[in-house]
Computed example of a mutant assay.
Amino acid sequence: MNVSFSSLFVILLALFAANLPFLNERLFALIPLKSGEQAATKPIWLRLLELLVMYAIVGAIGYALESKIGNAFAQGWQFYAVTGCMFLVFAYPGYVLRYLKKKHR
Rank of each mutant, 00 (worst) to 15 (best):
V3M: 04
F5T: 10
S7R: 07
L8P: 04
V10M: 01
V10S: 05
L13W: 01
A14S: 05
L15V: 06
F16M: 07
F16E: 00
A18W: 01
L20V: 03
L20K: 05
P21K: 01
L23E: 11
L23K: 09
E25K: 09
F28P: 04
F28E: 07
A29Q: 10
A29H: 10
A29V: 10
L30S: 08
I31H: 04
I31C: 03
L33M: 08
K34C: 04
S35D: 11
Q38G: 06
Q38N: 12
Q38T: 10
A39Y: 09
A39E: 13
A40H: 03
A40L: 08
A40G: 08
T41R: 05
P43M: 02
I44E: 14
W45V: 07
L46Q: 07
L48E: 10
L49P: 06
E50I: 02
L52W: 07
V53R: 05
I57G: 01
I57T: 08
G59R: 12
A60P: 08
A64I: 02
L65T: 11
I69G: 13
A72H: 05
F73T: 15
A74D: 11
A74S: 14
A74R: 08
G76R: 07
W77S: 14
W77M: 12
Q78S: 15
Q78G: 13
Y80I: 03
Y80F: 14
V82S: 02
T83S: 08
M86H: 00
M86L: 13
F87D: 02
F90Y: 10
F90V: 00
F90P: 09
F90A: 03
A91K: 01
A91M: 03
P93T: 00
P93M: 00
G94H: 01
G94A: 03
Y95A: 08
Y95C: 06
L97G: 13
L97S: 11
L97H: 10
L97F: 11
R98C: 09
R98G: 11
R98A: 11
Y99P: 15
Y99F: 15
L100E: 15
L100Q: 15
K102L: 12
K102M: 09
H104Y: 12
R105S: 15
R105N: 15
